[in-house]
């Protein structure tokens, strides 16, 4: 058993407990007790598997990033729908591109990968071994400058604020 790590363990346990109550859609005392026991057992038995702890701060920035991502997903859905329904020429200019990146925190990089992949039109394709450049695949590759600016300003800067 490793050292007792309270803060990350509590956040994990509380999230699991809330998910259990949501799944059962109840606040009955029996389910509350069962959920508490289950989540504590699960949290304790998986504590050794968590490689390193993250320390997210700036909750407000996280909420703002969430709404930015939601808006971008809605907008790029429409763009991708236009590409799919468009002409053959428009459909066949996809390709890979490289983006220089300054984010180093592993949890921040994982979040960035999820954001980029969840947005239609871009898929994460890899990170260089030294961590200075990431490769993404873009469906509508017209000007690389716009994509670089979008990712660096809209996603990377808030993530660096949150995780570093």
């Amino acid at each position: 058993m490793k050292r007792w790590r309270w803060p990350s363990l509590t956040l994990f346990t509380v999230t699991l407990f809330l998910l259990w109550l949501l799944l059962n859609d109840t606040l009955a005392p029996g389910q509350v007790v069962l959920g508490l026991v289950l989540t504590i057992v699960v949290a304790l038995s998986t504590a050794a598997m968590r490689p390193l702890r993250s320390r997210p701060h700036h909750l407000l920035a996280a909420v703002r990033l969430f709404f930015i991502v939601l808006f971008d997903i809605a907008r790029s859905n429409i763009v991708v729908a236009g590409v799919i329904l468009g002409s053959v020429k428009r459909r066949s200019n996809s390709g890979f591109m490289k983006i220089p990146i300054d984010l180093r925190d592993p949890y921040g990089l994982a979040t960035l990968a999820c954001i980029i992949t969840a947005t239609p039109g871009t898929v994460w394709a890899g990170l260089s071994p030294d961590g200075h450049a990431l490769t993404i695949h873009v469906l509508d590759l017209q000007d690389e400058e716009t994509w670089i600016r979008t990712i660096k300003h809209r996603y990377e800067r808030p993530l660096m604020e949150i995780f570093e």
């Binding site: 991708v80 329904l85 239609p120």
Partner: peptide, 29 residues
């Protein structure tokens, strides 16, 4: 409509890497 367009992308887009983008529409919005 969004899911149908996204899945139609599986048939209309030219190669595997482009096809990855179609179903993402149905998965998200």
């Amino acid at each position: 409509i969004l899911t149908l367009i996204g899945s139609a992308g599986l048939l209309r887009l030219p190669d595997l890497f482009a096809r990855m983008h179609g179903p993402t529409m149905g998965n998200t919005l």
